[in-house]
Amino acid sequence: MNKRKERLIKYLFTALAFSSLVFLIGIVLVLFKEALPIFGKVSLKAFLLGESWYPTSEPPEFGILPLILASLWVTLGALVICVPIGVGSALYLHELAGPRQRAILKPVIEILASVPSIVYGFFGMVILSPFLQDTFELPIGLCALTTSIILGVMATPTVASIAEDALSYVPRSFREASFAVGADRWQTLTKVIIPAAGSGISTAIILGMSRAIGETMTVLMVAGGAAVIPHSVFDPVRPMTAAIAAEMGEAPVGSDHYNALFAIALILFLITFVFNIAAEFISRRFRLKLGLSR
């Protein structure tokens, strides 16, 4: 009796535990199902490499190259900010901050991570973009540069906390060995600790990128929205997430435009999926290298 009840409970938990897998598969199925019809009208190549995105003109054009490039463009810009600052603060926290500083600084990073993206977007729209517009005398402040700065700030805490985690896995003995041969703290840091934590830090960067490329509200509000291939950092752009969020409300259900937006989401999903799997793979090898199970 008891045993049967225990077994039933175990089966119940096993079933519930697969929920995240079910949702993930569900997302893939939904994206494929709703995206596939568009490829009956437009070839995959024309879709990915087409240079004009005019989904509502007559005849419509579904080339998402400008959107993909916009996403990559603003993400690269974000990396310029979040990689040095994120990794730098992780190193500061791990190497220089005492316990009391850490007790304050780690929560600061966590709280920065919890600021809602809509607030970042609003901040970019009303504070940063007018400021940049005045400073660089731009025709319009809502552009790739503004977006990159905001995305960079948003991804910084992601990079910092994952990189800090990676640094904490580096065994103390590495550091002691380096000091023992007369290296100073900076040399130990750059020649021993950073290389040892290298793959962990690259995981942090990949996940930061994944965060930036999937970000929606901020880019929707500050990127400017022009679906053209960007040529300078001051161009307004329309990244993939912004296109989906802005146009989904207007696209009639089941129309080509609707399917095309799902196809964009599918490509976005695949990009972040590859990033996440890569991060998973690298961090796994990292832990194995340092002899950590798990």
Binding site: G214, T241, L268, N276
Partner: peptide, 17 residues
């Protein structure tokens, strides 16, 4: 892996789902 990937899905994709 599926939990980590679910955590990394862009929020707009959740919206479409």
């Amino acid at each position: 892996i599926s939990i980590n990937n679910l955590a990394g899905v862009p929020s707009v994709v959740f919206g479409l789902f």
